[in-house]
Computed example of a mutant assay.
Amino acid sequence: MPPMTGRVIAGRYILDQPIGRGAMGVVWRGRDQLLDREVAVKEVVLSSSIGLDERKNAYQRTLREARTAARLSHRGVVTVFDVAEEDGRPWIVMELVPSRSLDQVLTVEKRLTPLRAGRIGQQLLAALAAAHAVGVLHRDVKPSNVLIARERSGGEWDERAVLTDFGIAQFAGDPRLTQTGMVMGSPGFTAPERIRGGSATPASDLWSLGATIYAAVEGSGPYEQRGGAITTMSAIINEDAPVASSSSRLAPLIAALLRRDPSARPSAAAAARMFSDVLPLLPGAAAEPEHPATVMSAYVPPPAAPAASA
């Protein structure tokens, strides 16, 4: 296989260096030579052992990921610019967000303050609500799919939380591209109804959001200490989520999102009101000015800060 660095995709996008890896491939830092801007280019990497049908299925998923994200126009969702084809397979060209993933942040910092985690959760909720409004479900919300970028707002540095990797996202009503009964997503961040084989819904995305906020304040997800995937999934189905003891007044909101019965979870609108009510009460909130970055209605270009792994 020829070296990838310096390679030009679709006669336009030159690859620089890998900045992230996921289940479906590698994300490269690159440059759009036509528009002279930095981009992120997702390369689909498939095992040589898989059959032709599985390969076609994976390519369909990649194209669907691009179509999914391209339908969303929200500063809390990574923007898709283009889908290029090279070597008979698709490459997704996206906004480059200079950032670290939330799981990378937690590896270094161990856990976040309730106020910081709450602000990140509020932004992610707004991104999910925007996706759900156009019939798009994410289905794999977890810390490694949350990018944390720093940006200047009103003279102050603030954090922008961005939801990425709609690789297993699904349009509401679209046929599944996976085998019947196959549970997709990360076990520790997958809602109980989906582990039982039920369909993904907005409520299941909100459960995963609750598990992600829990991980932000506690340092790991609510069920991640259980051991292997089977043990973890069994606990999610059969046991109520533990209390996020480090989350201060954020605990009731996290607990509501993590209710096992999806009909008992708050809607996105109700959860948004809960965030608005609790954030001003969290330790440190009174000493800080209002953070406009938590208002997720307007798009803000990515900051011109040094990039880290995405």
Score class of each variant (00 low, 15 high):
His132Ala: 04
Glu85Leu: 15
Arg152Asp: 11
Asp82Leu: 07
Ile236Asp: 01
Arg71Gly: 15
Glu218Leu: 00
Ala269Met: 14
Ser234Lys: 06
His138Ile: 02
Thr232Cys: 07
Ala256Trp: 14
Asp36Phe: 00
Leu35Asn: 02
Ala126Met: 07
Arg176Pro: 14
Ala287Asp: 14
Asp87Trp: 09
Ser101Asp: 05
Gly181His: 02
Arg160Leu: 03
Asp36Ala: 07
Pro98Gln: 14
Arg67Glu: 12
Gly121Met: 04
Pro283Lys: 01
Pro90Thr: 05
Leu163Gln: 05
Ala172Asp: 15
Gly173Pro: 12
Gly219Trp: 09
Gln33Gly: 04
Arg55His: 07
Val278Tyr: 06
Ile19Arg: 04
Gly155Ala: 10
Ile213Pro: 08
Thr164Lys: 00
Gly88His: 08
Ile9Phe: 04
Ser49Phe: 08
Pro242Lys: 02
Ile14Trp: 00
Asp36Trp: 00
Lys110Trp: 00
Val243Ser: 12
Pro303Tyr: 03
Ala70Trp: 08
Ala269Ser: 11
Thr212Ala: 11
Asp140Ala: 02
Pro303His: 02
Val217Cys: 08
Ile168Met: 04
Ala255Leu: 13
Ile9Asp: 00
Ala161Arg: 07
Gln122Trp: 14
Gln123Pro: 01
Ala270Phe: 10
Trp28Gly: 07
Leu209Glu: 02
Leu35His: 10
Glu109Asn: 10
Pro175Trp: 06
